[in-house]
Simulated scan of single mutants.
Amino acid sequence: MASDPKTFVFSDVSVHNKTKDCWLIIDGKVYDVTPFMEDHPGGDEVLLAATGKDATDDFEDVGHSDDARDMMHKYYIGEVDKSTVPKKRTYVAPADRAYNPDKTQDFVVKILQFLVPLVILGLAFVVRSYTKEKSA
């Protein structure tokens, strides 16, 4: 950790609530977890859901390993002025949380790659059965 950590106010931290710009507050410390979004075992949605509030309880409830706790050091960017953190969170949905076109598109492509050959095979079977009945 830096010897002279930067101090952020809550409102400055809470605007970093997107997949490509994600900061979290845990135990009064501010972490820029943007580089970790794709690698987080729980998925980026879990991290996005922890933005805009003190995520300490969320982090502790999961029961992170010692390795996970050690990994946090590389994402540390400073401290939060605790007097600026609201006691209750006013929910603000991250801008890109509701719809992630990359993941949705990948899913649709995979489903189509699986279903299209099955549909073609099924149609071929129906046509073959139909033509056998006609010729008999």
Rank of each mutant, 00 (worst) to 15 (best):
Y31G: 04
V62F: 12
A50T: 01
G42A: 02
E45A: 14
V80N: 01
K53L: 06
E45L: 14
S65Q: 09
T19C: 05
F36Y: 11
D27M: 09
T56R: 07
A68G: 10
E60K: 15
I77E: 01
V80D: 01
D39G: 08
T51R: 02
H73W: 13
G28P: 11
S14M: 12
W23M: 10
K18W: 01
D67H: 05
K53A: 05
L24I: 04
A49E: 14
H73P: 01
E45K: 12
K53R: 14
E45M: 11
K20D: 15
E79A: 12
F59K: 09
F59E: 03
M37N: 01
F36C: 00
T56S: 14
D32H: 08
R69I: 15
C22I: 06
V30N: 03
D58I: 15
G63I: 10
V62E: 13
T56P: 08
M37Q: 02
Y31K: 05
K18T: 12
E79T: 14
V15A: 10
P41I: 00
G43Y: 06
F59T: 07
K29L: 13
V46L: 08
S65T: 15
R69G: 10
M37S: 03
T51W: 08
E45P: 00
G42D: 00
T19R: 12
D27Q: 12
K18P: 00
D58P: 11
Y75R: 00
V80Q: 01
H16Y: 04
P41C: 02
G52F: 11
T51S: 07
G78A: 11
L47R: 03
Y75G: 00
W23V: 04
D32V: 05
H16T: 01
G78V: 03
Y31D: 02
G52L: 09
G52Y: 06
H40T: 02
T51G: 02
A49Q: 14
R69P: 04
K20W: 06
D44H: 14
V30H: 04
V15Q: 13
T34P: 00
L24H: 00
V30S: 03
I77S: 02
D54H: 05
D54V: 09
I77Q: 01
I25S: 05
S65V: 07
M37A: 02
D61T: 04
L24D: 00
D27N: 15
G63Q: 10
T34C: 07
D70R: 02
W23R: 06
W23T: 02
T34S: 04
D57L: 13
D32P: 10
W23Y: 13
